[in-house]
Design a protein around this nucleic acid. Structure first.
Lengths: 340, 340
DNA sequence: GTGAAAGCGCTAACAG
DNA sequence: CTGTTAGCGCTTTCAC
């Protein structure tokens, strides 16, 4: 394991010297190049083992131009939905020979700009980005020269590849399930006052479409408003709505955290789920799966989202330069008993 | 925004050419070097903006030997505890000017070996690694030449820096709290048959220390065994224990997921928390915070863990080469009402 | 089949 | 204060 070069790492040249061959030959062995005599291969391999040689990846990159790394930029690593997406993207990327560098934007506008502007220059071969704040126009304008695929609903420039689920349809189907369970007075938890997000908007639209289709008049009192995205905000919002006298038979929630908020508010009000009120969450995260009772939840196919994003990105990295493609990933409704 | 070099990226040399100066001068401007005349600075900056120049990070690395990146290797990105650790380490690293590349080992032995052997060669300046499978001996043997800090209890070679909480003490304190609440028959959920982990072992020891100190005889029936780490395993384990006739007044759980399992098993058995049985979780993850009722949980200070790990790692990266230092991060007991 | 040499784009020592 | 130049370690033509 002694290097011979005090302080320094073992380089390709050192191996070549020890084996008495040129760098090219060593390189051939390292890369399993076919036309190398068995004897040569063994000799070089011995030298490699003896010195404990490992190729320097940074140098390889500079020479090849490829980095083998992808950036995944998401708002927060510890929000269950993003953690699960990150896991799947990490797994799928690993399968395809890429490694992931994770960028937490913390929903900060500047951090998001940096992601598509220059933060990844020469560092990664491509970027998968779930924006929260930045909008369609700005992404189109900053148009990075690194291949980019967008996730989520926040921004969907025509020029950029995109993967998401059909939020309107999923919401419609969710509401239909609640209707089928005999619920008529269905609340939506919640639109967020400070920050009406696109995904909330789409989900609300789908929800209302289903109501209209069922001939149920839209009642604004059933579209609950929350002050923020925290669980406490959701609890308070629903409690206030109940206090104002609405008597929902079901609550469709914009995410699982709000579904948990609904559970708590209903529990506080002495209402039972699903006997008195149905609850349907969204995202199908650990939060929904592991509570008591486990929550029914609208479930984006996260594996499919990951695989599709990688597909699109690989096309771009291979040079595809056409217009942005928008892919819809499938979703299901996981019924764990809080619907009916 | 036109580069002038069809197909290629804009390089330092291109900027120098356009500005009519040398590369060194451009470099000085890029690095905000002090001794540059204002006029020069402006001239160069104009050229930079005009060409849209961004330094190639890979090349910079090769030249400096520093990568500015750290690897974080954890079993699974979507396990709440690890997701939260990853978030804090990401934030803390960002504050210190590093970026994080995340390695999911999925608790695979080979993947773990790769992490400390060669996976990161020349790619990162240091590695923070939470091993699951690999042991102390092997880490000492593979001794990487990249600075390394270990997290968790699985492996603690004397030669390697390490951060963890005092599991024995935390468990003892947790059990003491349950005793103070008047509980005497306290079950431990659970040891895992297939894979007795070091952290479970330490937690069980602390638990039993507290019982002995309180003069309560140890009853093996209260140390529950589970077939695996899944929630379903935990539920089944506790249900079987209840069926065998134990009547615990409290359950100390090795993690929050098992605490949720306890909640479900107890609920299935018609027992109320905390009126009939107290439940205390471990890790203080979103799972504990957001359920109904919210769970009391032993809470490792994840921010402190992240900061300490970075401190140790930075020392190593600056050349510190002494013996391994073992740091204990603080913990608290978050009582959300399921103890008393 | 194998070797020599020219980069990849940037930094840093050393002149000037 | 600014310019020149020699690497960082690897890949990759192009000869031999």
């Amino acid at each position: 394991m002694a290097t011979g070069r005090p302080g320094g790492r073992v380089r390709l040249q050192d191996v070549a010297d020890l084996a008495g061959v040129s760098m090219k030959t060593v390189s051939n062995v390292v890369h399993d190049y076919e036309h190398v005599s068995d004897q040569m291969r063994r000799r070089v391999q011995t030298a490699i083992d003896e010195l404990g040689y490992r190729p320097n990846l940074t140098a390889r990159r500079l020479a090849t131009g490829r980095t083998g790394m992808l950036a995944l930029a998401i708002p927060e690593l510890d929000q269950p939905y993003f953690a699960e997406i990150a896991r799947h993207i990490g797994e799928e990327a690993g399968r395809r020979g890429y490694r992931i560098i994770v960028e937490q934007t913390l929903s900060d506008v500047e951090a998001e700009r940096a992601v598509i502007r220059d933060r990844e220059e020469g560092l990664v071969d491509g970027v998968i980005f779930h924006p929260a704040r930045i909008d369609t126009l700005e992404i189109a304008r900053l148009r990075p020269d690194t291949p980019l695929v967008l996730l989520g609903e926040a921004a969907r420039p025509l020029t950029t590849d995109h993967v998401m689920i059909d939020n309107v349809r999923a919401a419609r189907e969710g509401t239909e399930r609640l209707l089928q369970a005999g619920r008529r007075r269905i609340a939506f938890l919640a639109t967020v006052r400070t920050d009406i997000t696109e995904s909330t908007r789409l989900r609300l639209i789908g929800h209302q479409e289903a109501l209209v289709a069922a001939g149920i008049p839209l009642d604004p009192a059933f579209v609950i408003e929350s002050d923020g995205f925290d669980m406490a905000d959701g609890v308070r919002a629903l409690e206030e709505a109940l206090a104002r006298g609405i008597e929902p038979q079901a609550v469709l929630c914009r995410d699982d955290l709000f579904a948990l908020a609904a559970m708590r508010a209903l529990s506080n009000a002495g209402l039972r789920v699903p006997d008195d009120v149905s609850v349907l969450g969204w995202d199908d995260t650990a939060l929904a799966r592991f509570g008591t009772p486990p929550l029914s939840s609208i479930s984006p196919d996260k594996r499919a989202i990951a695989a599709t994003a990688l597909d699109l990105l690989e096309d771009r990295m291979k040079g595809y330069d056409g217009i942005g493609r928008h892919r819809i990933a499938p979703h299901t409704i996981e019924d764990r008993g809080t619907i009916a």
